[in-house]
Simulated assay, not measured.
Amino acid sequence: MANPLARAQYLLAAHNPRQLPPDDGFEVAFAGRSNAGKSSALNALCQQNALARVSKTPGRTQQLVFFDLPSHTGRYLVDLPGYGYAKVPRELQAHWQAFLDRYFQARQALRGLVVVMDIRHPLKDYDRHMLDYAAKRGIPAHVLLTKADKLSKGNAGSTLLAVRRDLAATYGDTVGVQTFSGESKLGVDEARKVICGWLDMPAP
């Protein structure tokens, strides 16, 4: 079966709630600290090289970027602003915070949250903050421990177990976690199945 995410295409970038598409579909949001590998993960999941912009400049995503899945009406992937970057102006940080608060509280189309973490630096305060959003809203979350190819298999496995224990103690069974690499494609099929399930689409 073909990958239904492969036809994802840029739809719009929203800087305030008025610019969001109609709230009557299914969407999965992607969050991650700056340089955690969020854009690379999106590109790997959608089998595209430049769907999400990969930048060496942290904090480049400064809006909610929506990608449409044209073969399935009203299905979206949403790239949230990269967070945790100190050089972003304080006013812009406050704007993002207010916008994200409202998005997570009110957006009915939101079906799941993917939180991307560098496996070498997992579960920072901002990561937990995003997971708290999902927990408060009662939606499932899934953690991608990216750049797993940078560690030995043993170290990656032990980090995965430690993060899994931490998440289970805090969030119960509402948060999944796996190792992932956009570079080597480790874990791409597993993550794709989770996302397609949330979007009520057949998994490849």
Rank of each mutant, 00 (worst) to 15 (best):
12 L>M: 14
13 A>C: 02
14 A>M: 01
16 N>L: 13
17 P>I: 02
17 P>M: 13
19 Q>W: 06
20 L>I: 09
21 P>V: 02
22 P>C: 03
23 D>V: 11
24 D>N: 15
26 F>S: 08
27 E>V: 08
29 A>F: 10
29 A>L: 13
30 F>N: 06
31 A>R: 03
31 A>K: 04
31 A>W: 04
33 R>S: 11
34 S>F: 05
34 S>N: 09
34 S>C: 14
35 N>Q: 00
37 G>S: 06
37 G>A: 09
37 G>M: 09
37 G>T: 05
38 K>A: 10
38 K>W: 11
39 S>N: 09
42 L>A: 07
43 N>A: 13
43 N>I: 03
43 N>M: 11
44 A>E: 02
44 A>W: 03
45 L>F: 07
46 C>E: 07
48 Q>K: 12
48 Q>N: 03
49 N>I: 05
51 L>G: 08
52 A>S: 14
53 R>N: 07
54 V>T: 14
54 V>C: 07
56 K>E: 15
57 T>Y: 05
57 T>D: 09
59 G>K: 00
63 Q>K: 12
64 L>K: 09
64 L>T: 05
65 V>M: 00
66 F>E: 02
67 F>I: 04
68 D>Q: 14
69 L>V: 01
69 L>A: 01
70 P>Q: 02
70 P>H: 14
72 H>F: 15
74 G>R: 10
75 R>Q: 02
75 R>P: 00
76 Y>D: 00
77 L>Q: 02
78 V>T: 09
78 V>A: 10
78 V>H: 07
79 D>W: 07
81 P>I: 12
81 P>E: 03
82 G>D: 06
